[in-house]
Each structure stands twice: as C-alpha cells, then as structure tokens.
Design a protein around this nucleic acid. Sequence first.
DNA 1: AGCACGCCGACT
DNA 2: GTCGGCGTGCTC
Length: 829
Amino acid sequence: MDDANEQVLFADVALPVPVPMLYTYSIPAEYRGNIKERTRVIVQFGKKRIVTGIVEKVHGNRPEIYAAKPILEVLDTEPIITRMQMEVMKWMSDYYMCTFGEVINAALPSGLKLSSESRIQLHPHNDWNDSEYPFDDRELLILKALENKDSLTYKEAAEVIDQKSALKFIKSLIQKDVIIIYEEVREKYKPKIVKKIRLAASYATDEKTLQSLFAELEKRPKQSDILLKYLQMVPVYHKPERNEVGIPKSTINEAGLSVSSLNTLIKNKIFEEFEEIISRFEENTEVFEASPLSEIQEKAKQEILDVFEEKSTALLHGITGSGKTEIYISLIQEALDNGLQVLYLLPEIALTAQIVNRLKVVFGDRMGVYHSKFSDNERVEVWMGLLDGRFDFIVGVRSAIFLPFTGLGLIVVDEEHENSYKQYEPAPRYHARDVALFLAHKHGGKTILGSATPSVESFYNAKIGKYGLVTISNRYGDAQLPQMVFADIRTEKKRKTATGNFSSVLIQALGEILEKKEQAIVFQNRRGYSNFITCDDCGYTPECPRCAVSLTYHQYKNQLNCHYCGHKEPVPISCPACGSQRIRTVGFGTEKIEEDLKLIFPDAKIQRMDLETTRVKYAYHNIIKDFEDGKIDILVGTQMVSKGLDFDRVSLVSVFDIDRMIHFPDFRSMERTYQLTTQVSGRAGRKDIAGKVIIQTGNPEQPILKLISQQNYSTFFDLEMREREKFNYPPFSRMIKILVRSKDKELSKKAAEFLGNILIEELGTYRVLGPHEPTINKIRDKYLMEIYLKIERKYNINSVKEKIKAAYLEALRKKDFTQVEFITDVDPY
DNA sequence: AGCACGCCGACT
DNA sequence: GTCGGCGTGCTC
C-alpha cells in the first residue's frame, strides 16, 4: 500500500493542551509537500475538540498502533515560530516542569490560536450544488444556513440542526470538500486600513494641466477649496513624488471642507481614492537623537561594554534617579546599529506611558510594544512585525520573551528584582528574567539586568563573578537623598497623640506639604491590608464560601469581594450570625486611608491609586497625569505608586504600615521590604526639593529599619546573606515548591503526606520542608497543602526533578489520589 | 485541560 | 423504567 510517493506523510504536532507528548497526524494528499515544520495546523483532538497545533516534525513513519487522524487545515505557508523559539520553549518545559503544550499556550497570542469557537464557511471554490456527494438532511440544513450567514461557529451549527454537536456533520462536510474551517485567525488579525486620496496622475505630473484645472474649477468654489487644501498639504509642484503618498481622506472633513464635493472630484477622475494598510501603532516619523550621556553615565556604559568583553551578563546597580534609562538607550542604539535585535523587558506595572514614550521618541517605528493590556490584533502585529523585520526593537512585559526573535544582540531587564516577572498561574510558572538570560545565551547576545535594589540572587551572581557588576552611586543631577523618619505608631497610640492609624508626625508633615503646595505620596502595601467587616457583638466576619479568606470590603460598590476567586456578595445589613446591626469595618486599605485623610484634610485634593481605581483603560495614565499637573495633593496608593514614576514636586513619601511587610511569612520578606521602601523613598525629593520619608512602625528598634535608613545596599546584602545561609535559602539553594490540591481536605493532606514521605526518603529530611498547610488553605473550593524542596547548588537539580516526577507517578498510581492535583513551581517567588 | 463513557440515586 | 450526578481514563 505504501508506495514511494508516500514518503512524507505524517506530522508530529504539539498541541496547546496539557498533555505531555506530541501527537501524530497524517498529511492529506493535497497538502503533501506544503506542510512545513513550525507552522500552524488545525486538527481534531479527541472526539469533539478542534485545536490549533504547531507542526514540530514532518516524517514518513506511519504510526503502528493507531490510525492517525488527518490534518484539517494549514494556517501558514511559512513558519511563524523560529527554530530558536522551539528550543527555548522546550527548555522552558523541562526547566519549569510543565508540558510543551502549556508553554505554547502561553507563547502564542490568542489571535494566533484557534479553539472550539472556530467557525466554518462554505468552500470558496467548490459549490456544494455541484458536488458529487449526496448530503443528508442535517448536512443540507448546515449548508443552507451557511449560504445565509457567511460563517457559523460550531455551536451555531449545532443549533441549526438542533443537536448537541454538529461535529459529525461538519467533519463529513469537510471531507466532502464543500465547507472549510474559517480562518478566524486571518479574520481576527485585521490590518487597519485608511482611505486616502491623491491627485489623478495626469494632473500631478504637469504644472500646466494643474493650472487649467484651477480654471476649470473656478465656478465650483467648494471643489477648488479642496484642491487648494490638498496642494497646501502636498507640494505637488516641488515634489511630485509626494502625490503618491496622498493624504487621508478624513483630513478633508476635518478641515471643514465638503466631502460630497470631494466625491464629485473623485467621480470626475480629478482625484483618486485608494486604501493603505497602516500600522496599528501611531506612526512616528520623527526620530530624535538620544540625549548625550553625562560623564558618569558614559563611564557606566563603558564599564558595561567592558563586562561584555568576557561575560554575557552585566548587573547595573544604579540608585533611583541615576539615569539608567539613558545608558540603556545608548547601548540599544549601538546594538541596533550593528543589525541586531533588542528586547527591553519591563515589569507589568512599570509599563507606563512615561518610559514607552521616551523610547518611542528615540526609536520610532522600528520599536514594537508588547503588553497584555494591548488587544490581540496588536500583539499579533508585533509578532508578525518581528518575523518580517518591521520591528527590531521590542519593549514588553514578561510574555515578550516568547516573541520570534531571529538575532537578539541585547536584552535589557529593567527593574530586574520585580516579582511580576514571575508567572505563578497558570503553568508555565516561569521567571522572565531567567528565561531572558537563557534566550540571550542561545542568541549569543548580551543581557543587562538593571535595578536600584537588585534581587539577592542576581547580586550574589555578580559577587561570585558570574555577572559583571556595574555600579552608579551618584544620583543624576545631584538630587539629594531623602531624610528618613520612623514614626512610632504604637507609642503614639498609647499616648493618644495618634489620630486613628495616623501618627502625629505624619499628619504634621502632610499639613506642611499642603501649606507649601508640594505633593505627598502615602504608600500602603497591598499584601494583607484587606479591609474586612466584623460584627461587634459576636465577632463574626464574612468569609469567602470557596476560599479560606475573609472577604474584602469595598466601599465604593458597597460589596464584599474575594481577592482569590473573585466571589462577590452584597454587604449584609445585619450580622448573618446573630442579627446584630453593629457591623463595622476593620483593617487599613488604601480606600480607608483615602477616606480618613479626606476627613483630616477636607480641603486637600486626595486621590487613590490601586487595582480598583486603575482597572479602566487609561485610568492609570490619567491619575499620573493629574498628579503631574498638580491636580492632586496627596496620592494614596499600593505598590503601583512606587514604580518608576518621577514627580518633581513630591517632597514627602509615607510608608503607612511597614510591619505587615516585615512579618510576611516568607524568606524573601526582608528583601521585599528593603526593595519596596527604597523604591518608594526614591519618589521623594527631586532636583532642589529635599525629600522626607516617614515610615510608620510599631517597633522602630527592628534591625531591618536601621538597614533601610542607611540606604546602603551592600550592608543589607551582607546581612541578608547571613540569614539565607543559616537556613540554606536561595541563593545557597534552589527551591522547588510542590502544591497539592484537591476538593477534599483530608485527601490533600494524605496525598501531601504520601508525597512528602517519598521525597524525604529520596532526598533526605533536611531538603524537604513540610508538608505544611498554607495560611490560606482553600482556594476555589480546593484544599491546599505545600511542600518546599531546598536543594543545595551543587546537587544535581535534574535528578531532583526526575524524582519529583517519579513521586507523582507513584502517588497517582494509588487509586485514592487520582483526584489530587500536583503543581510544581520551580524557583517560586 | 476537556470530554465521553460508565455506573448509581430521584423523577416522568 | 429514564435523566443526570460526577469518578476515571483517553486524547494521534
């Protein structure tokens, strides 16, 4: 049966599903020779699902134990994924212990994916009326529906024939070649088209005809106005070639000229109308030169280049406001000039208009922006733009590491210590900084990690010489460091000098700011701040029905929310437990701080900035703008206010409650506290204004506070390293977190115990922490248990991963544990 | 992850 | 007698 022609018949396809292997599909004759590796295909997976997969390998080995299903559609003629990307994604699935499909799922913007929402349409070339095949009633119903409606989703097709699933008929119709799977992808990726006008070629080339044209239009003033306007915008006399480009048709309307007159001109073939595909990103033809570097910046840049002579990674440790961005710009420029691609990674929250605009001004249209808040079209456009060479510089968040780079010369990881680089849910649970290092290595490129407060891991790597360390210690423009004050809130409360949770020190300082017409930022860490409500009589506090947390009180909606699963419920009027009306709010969130401040300073303009107030598109931008414009006196906010924003008139910053941060039960809590307070403090005092930082604490004697007030990273680092070494925490070890999850609390415990015992036996007690029940032990109705593994550096981490996998298999072999999920988080944050 | 197959309780 | 609950096992 197999003849020589059938040598290439099969494709191994990676599917965006969490199954650990590739699946082999047959290549239908019509596609033979047309299916390339790393292109997308549509296949049936299981009985019902139609998914987009990536062809990983084309070969001629017919599978022996099963019949391969055919590939249904081919979406690309050329690979949309590079060979390098495949390798990086494979590395990711190994390193982060997830399936290749999960990596693909995270990598492809959904505009490049296709799911059961897929649509079908009539075959554009084969008319079903001429088909040689017979159709049954239901097939006919679908075909007729398609004649009326252009395209149908699978669901709609099922409704048409009044069945649960139409797949059987769709499949048959596809086989009969009368319908095709509608390429939703191409539909989704609609280029933006603009209608333009230009003079008809005969008028544009010749000055004389143009003169006679004016004469001709003399009696039609509206038309000659249009012509005049056009000539004003396009100097056809001097630059006839400019006529080719034309002007957008909309400019005529915008200039208050008659559109119908223009249409007449078009009808009379004096003007012609045409369409042009424009980039979704604003055209920015003006390209500015980067501002020259200061002596200090120039020196730092040279040091980075020196590091790159022998190492591939440089850690740029420059305090806030030391002008790191200019150094990046200069190095990016050089890499681009050498014909290399550049990736600039930013943490999610810092992707403000400020930095993107600054880069856009310098790099213009060659720069693509990749951000989760952007629409799918825009993300697909960046992906494709990178493949076809339209972009060679990408600014983006975490997921930008998945883009199809072909020759990366430089990666900048700005604010390298930021934990938003780590993806926690869902898999792949990757750290973009670490993937960036691997990515750069693969491309033979260089990486700059930049931060004012480097992560302990990165600084350690610099200390042991793995990275080169470059330090800038002067603040750009010689701005002064702020003065730091610790306000003892506990003593103030005892002596009754505090107003609620505001120390007299803070209130007085805020009063002075308002008087001097300066600005202040009040920072309250989001973590664990939650406002909740409680009954004064019985102490009842509403909890989430699905998670083991109290519900957060949101005044503006008069609602109780769960931060873990999104559950919402109205605020009860009386206590659900005892019926009492005496319900009050507890806790200090940004909302409460804002409200209290408004009572204390009724005339001040106070604005809150947190997840709630910035959820709407551009809200973030608007608040920042208002603050810059002086329309806000006091900005109350979460972490958001601490990142990369430079305001000239801010002279006071307050950390409202540092103790919560310090006592967060996590080995990184000191590091985080140090980083956050340093970042926040950096907002205080620029140029000529000397800043002040007020930190409210219940215990001003805590050692970490001394370190913070010294603002000396090395001292902090040395001390923190001693702590880490004592308990064998990273960077002395690698950590792997195992989360055990199931609907049954006891089952979770038993499974975790079982797994823990295997791991203890395999790795030794001192490498296994737990199993523990986490503080929040239930999320979305599933009970959690966790096990941490601490593996010293010299131990073979791959063997550990194998042992973990083996332990999972052993656990899953037990009947009781089949309903239990095991989640692995490598290098948890 | 889905989705179907399969085996046990409350209903026309 | 059936509809439907969700346990479990497979998907080329």
